[in-house]
């Protein structure tokens, strides 16, 4: 039901590049950090919600039956059975959401600069382009890449490995 109601909207939002939100965000929030937060949020949220919905769809029906025979009420069914069951899918959604939002942040920083917005890697990249300084551009690209790899290796990979190992879905 959740998928039917929100599925097409969420898929549509996922296809829409979050950079498309930059002009609207600038009009709403001006050249402030709120613009960046908004674009990041719009970039991440479809993937996170998609992960959540996919997780709910993949919960084996037997978990529901077991929950019922164990006497779980609706709240207990959600918190003790459904949420733990969908955790791997949810983390998968978070991981994808992080990738989208990181890309969005860089794009937003390139497009919208000035005002009270801080100086970020995207701004550095844009500055390198303006000065036609290839070394600055390549350094910025490498740092952006490095941050992505480090977050993947230090945050998402260990969480996913732990989740899958404890469930017997990955050799320890």
């Amino acid at each position: 039901m959740l998928r039917q109601a929100f599925g097409p909207l969420i898929s549509g939002l996922q296809v829409l590049p979050s950079v498309a939100w930059v002009p609207a965000a600038v009009i709403w929030f001006g050249l402030t950090d709120a613009t960046v937060y908004f674009v990041i949020f719009m970039g991440a949220i479809p993937s996170v919600v998609n992960g959540l919905i996919a997780g709910v769809r993949q919960v084996p029906p037997q978990h529901h039956r077991v929950g019922r025979v164990l006497g779980a009420n609706r709240w207990q069914m959600t918190t003790r059975i459904l949420l733990p069951a969908i955790l791997p899918s949810y983390v998968g959604g978070l991981r994808q959401g992080w990738a989208f939002s990181w890309r969005s942040l860089m794009a937003a920083e390139i497009i919208a600069t000035g005002g009270s917005m801080g100086f970020g890697l995207g701004t550095l990249l844009d500055q390198g382009r303006a000065l036609a300084d290839m070394s600055v551009v390549l350094t910025a690209v490498l740092i952006i890449l490095l941050v992505g790899v480090v977050v993947e290796l230090l945050v998402f990979a260990p969480i996913e490995r732990r989740l899958l190992t404890t469930r017997g879905l990955l050799e320890s």
């Binding site: 037997q62 978990h63 077991v66 025979v69 059975i81 733990p84 069951a85 404890t166």
Partner: peptide, 14 residues
């Protein structure tokens, strides 16, 4: 009544 299923149906994260 309590119920025991054909497969153990244990929760894999516990």
């Amino acid at each position: 009544a309590a119920f025991m299923f054909q497969d153990a149906s244990l929760f894999p994260w516990l």
